[in-house]
Design a protein around this nucleic acid. Structure first.
Length: 403
RNA sequence: GUGGGAUUAGCUCAGUUGGUUAGAGCACUGGUUUGUGGUGCCGGGGGUCGCGGGUUCGAAUCCCGUAUCUCACCCCA
């Protein structure tokens, strides 16, 4: 038997219902915030991801589905959504057009990782990107949007917040931290030594107990912000406070992608295992110019749909449509005709086999039909039928022609 | 990429120290007076015990390999 590739799942039945329910709910919220749908290709030049996500990140370093196509182009399946949207933004010259551009997207992402619960090789994200707004209010707007989406889906969460600083304060802090950790390089773990090269800030949330003791006294980024970052961060907290949004400051919160600066946030759930981040995002003011666009402030987030799936509280699906059953064989042709006519406007379930009343009722309950009709010799003779409303148990008689 | 645990019917799981024809619940399907309400009752189909080797008179059971899932690490949505 040929099976799907490792970490690549089929989505059907109940899962598909939840999946589309989430996309519809999130899209609806995004539109209320004034965002517009954008679709970008699944395949892009590898260079796009190397330059945006950052060559140092694991995603680009070892997790991309990368290959040379028949035209000798170095291409990769997208591992995340922001890079493609920024590329499209620049390619359509919206950076030069000026003004504010707000987009949302959803679709498949690909990372060649070891699968586990909440971590797949092909997975789906819903994301939002806002271009041209420097104001910290837009950062708050992003967070409020995630809250609204999660609320609409009945999902509980904790919000973690940090500031990563900008080009003014981040490099200096970066150096300080490296110097501090280097002093203890004989005591910290192997992973942390490696992180010093790749992403030093990551050492701060190392799970190793010895490392944690050392880092307790390490310099904190949040205490080393420049004035404008500091101002924005406290303003952001004020905005969230006044909108009744709870958050925790997590000075160890680091985004894995190189393009983030200033605001970083992550929504986590305690109910889905170790892959607990259900949404993450932040500001990336430098990315547009890194990708050869005109400098444009930007902020965005992405949500991992598979991680949200089991948390979504679905509304009860109401009884819907008709069930038409045949009591004897020679009524089958008639119910096929009736269903063909009615399906122009309604959902209709039928069975091609004649059954007794009880079995038809069972079948009607199973497909969650609202109306129930039985056709047998009586109906054919009288050219009328009884439509029973299974919800409120009322009946009415109509002629076959009227139906 | 590293280390642990798991894999038996469509699903959730039993299966004793290796020993007849591998079970249950749910689901599916048929019947239960072919005309008014689901829960009842009686049947039925469905398994190369993940896959491939090995040990043994005999393997779902023990050993090795492999695939997938899962947990932790790593990383991230």
């Amino acid at each position: 038997m040929i099976k799907s590739l490792r970490g690549m799942n089929d989505i059907l039945s109940e899962d598909y219902k939840r999946f589309t329910y989430f996309i519809n709910t999130a899209s609806d919220v995004a539109q209320k915030y004034g965002f517009h749908f954008i679709q970008t290709p699944l395949l892009e030049e590898t260079a796009l991801f190397k330059r945006s996500v950052g060559a140092s990140s694991d995603i680009v370093g070892k997790e991309m589905y990368q290959f040379i196509d028949k035209g000798e182009n170095d291409v990769s399946l997208r591992p995340e959504g922001t890079a493609g949207v920024v590329r499209a933004f620049i390619q359509k010259k919206l950076d030069k057009a000026g003004g504010i551009h707000r987009f949302f997207y959803h679709g498949s992402m690909f990372r060649y990782e070891r699968p586990q619960k909440g971590r797949l090789r092909q997975f789906h994200q819903f994301g939002v990107e806002s271009f041209g707004v420097e104001s910290i209010y837009e950062d708050a707007n992003m967070i409020m949007m995630v809250c609204d989406i999660l609320l609409a889906c009945g999902i509980g969460y904790r919000l973690q917040l940090n500031s990563l600083g900008d080009a003014k304060c981040m490099p200096a802090y970066h150096d300080n931290l490296v110097k501090y950790v280097t002093k203890f390089k004989d005591e910290v773990c192997k992973d942390c030594i490696r992180r010093l090269d790749t992403n030093p800030i990551r050492v701060l949330d190392c799970k190793n107990k010895i490392c944690q003791r050392i880092y307790k006294d390490a310099p904190k980024l949040i205490n080393n912000l420049c004035q404008s970052c500091e101002d924005d961060f406290s303003k952001l907290k004020n905005i969230l406070d006044s909108n009744n949004i709870d958050y925790e400051i997590d000075t160890n919160l680091v985004r894995g992608l190189d393009y983030y600066s200033k605001t970083a946030f992550e929504f986590v759930s305690d109910n889905i295992g170790s892959q607990s981040a259900i949404a993450g995002g932040g500001r990336y003011d430098k990315l547009v110019e890194f990708l050869d666009g005109r400098p444009t402030p930007a902020v965005g987030f992405a949500m991992g749909i598979e991680r949200l799936m089991e948390l979504i509280v679905m509304p009860e699906s109401p009884k819907n449509g008709y069930y038409i059953g045949a009591m004897d064989e020679n009524a089958v042709d008639l119910i096929v005709q009736l269903s063909h006519k009615k399906r122009k406007t309604h959902k209709v379930s039928i069975d091609y086999k004649a059954k007794n009343f009880k079995n038809h009722i069972k079948a009607a309950e199973k497909v969650n039909a609202k109306y129930f009709i039985i056709i047998g010799s009586n109906e054919i003779q009288s050219a009328t039928m009884v439509i029973r409303n299974l919800k409120d148990n009322t009946e009415k008689t109509v002629t076959l022609k009227e139906f």
